[in-house]
Amino acid sequence: MERRTFLKLAAGTTLLAGTGMAGINAASAASKEIVYLTPGLDLPFWRYLSKGIEETVKAKGYNFQALDSHNSAETQLRNAQDSIARGVAGIVISPTDSSTAPSVLALAQKANIPVVIGDIGTNSGDYASFIISDNYKGAHDVGVALATALKAKGWESGSVGIVAISQARKNGQARTKGFLDGLKEGGFTGKEAGMQQMQSYTADETFKFTQDLLTANPDMRGLFIQTDQPAIGALRAIKAARRNGEVLVAAFDGIPEFVDLLKSGDLVVSGMQQPFLMGATSGEALLKVLDGGTPEKEITVPIVAITSTNIEQELPTIRKTVFANEV
């Protein structure tokens, strides 16, 4: 599979691509609308990715609409059907999970509407390009950083819990394996405190999961939250249990609140994907198809492990590529 790896972009870099049409049906050729099928706009990561797509395609004269699936495969399929029925020019999809994505891809292929996948991935099906972060490497770096912090406190023989995104998603599987491998390679010698899988992807849900893990594992010294906003719920639960300073928290992705939390040490590390850059890259890939070109089948956007020691240095870049200029 052909791959291209993007380097991080400096803040303010403008991402543009050519536009046009080739090889799609007449209804799509007449359309100037691109839609983004997203798992849930309540999660900042998907909002930032959406902004990247929107900025890129609007710069080339396309209309844009993001359709929220509310983490429901059924809703995502219905959104896809509606979009295809009105003959959109192209679709970017972040599947609700990898196992249900093929249904959407099959419908789009039948209608001859090009699809780019922005994150998560699919178990099968045809698509023009897949924009993906190196979830294994990003989570591996998080695991190493957490193990290092645990060792510095003499807690490497304690236990570490995980609040995971869906393990039906390929990126979820990669994050879990990468993190556990990184923990081991970083010198952690303790045990796993168990794993809870998110369903609603909210801070309140993770608050409860963290309470359960703390109760079941009095020796728990580390916790990995596999996406952004839910990490706030974990920190709240640790504070409510009066375990402040006794459990080190590692996160994934990034929201503006993380900047101060990393500076204060409340978060040890966050493996930040660059969702705005991923969205812009997804938009570029789709525009290339519409212009008659062939984008790389898989394009990898790196993940940046942000800690208290490098946050100031990395902040100018991640303001744009991670936070979409919201911080």
Rank of each mutant, 00 (worst) to 15 (best):
L214Y: 06
S98M: 11
P302V: 11
Q167S: 12
D126A: 04
I113S: 00
A11I: 07
A152K: 02
R175E: 01
G283K: 02
I91G: 01
A231E: 02
T210Q: 02
I93H: 02
P275A: 05
G292E: 14
V322A: 11
T96I: 05
N112V: 08
A305R: 06
S282E: 00
S98I: 13
A30P: 15
N123I: 08
T215G: 14
M1F: 10
Q65S: 14
E257K: 08
G178T: 08
K297V: 14
L107M: 10
Y62M: 02
K60N: 08
D228R: 07
S94I: 01
M1D: 10
G118Q: 00
R221Q: 11
G172Q: 01
K32V: 09
K170R: 10
A147V: 07
L213P: 07
V35H: 02
I84H: 03
V268G: 06
T148G: 11
F188V: 13
E205C: 06
G222D: 02
L235H: 01
D97S: 09
Q196E: 06
G118C: 07
N25Q: 12
I120H: 04
W155N: 03
D97K: 13
Y127K: 02
W46I: 01
L9G: 05
Y136D: 01
V247W: 02
F209R: 03
R236K: 14
P39Q: 07
R242P: 01
A17D: 10
I117G: 03
S264P: 03
S264A: 13
F276M: 12
S28K: 03
L37V: 00
P39H: 08
A66T: 06
A108C: 04
G190D: 11
T294L: 15
G293S: 07
A106F: 07
A145W: 04
L290W: 01
Q313V: 13
Q211M: 11
P316L: 02
S124R: 06
V104G: 06
F130D: 01
L235K: 10
N310S: 04
A17H: 03
I34D: 12
A85E: 14
A324R: 03
G87N: 13
T96C: 15
G182N: 09
A234D: 02
L287I: 05
A305Q: 01
T309L: 01
I84W: 13
F323W: 12
T100D: 13
I84L: 07
T307Q: 06
G20E: 07
S69V: 04
D97I: 11
S72H: 10
V57W: 09
V247M: 04
G61Y: 11
K151Q: 10
S200G: 03
D42I: 13
G279D: 04
V289D: 00
L213V: 10
A251Q: 09
K8I: 13
P316N: 00
T321K: 04
T307K: 04
A203G: 08
I165T: 09
K151C: 08
I91D: 00
P302E: 14
G161Q: 00
Q211S: 09
E314G: 13
I131D: 02
P39L: 08
Q226A: 15
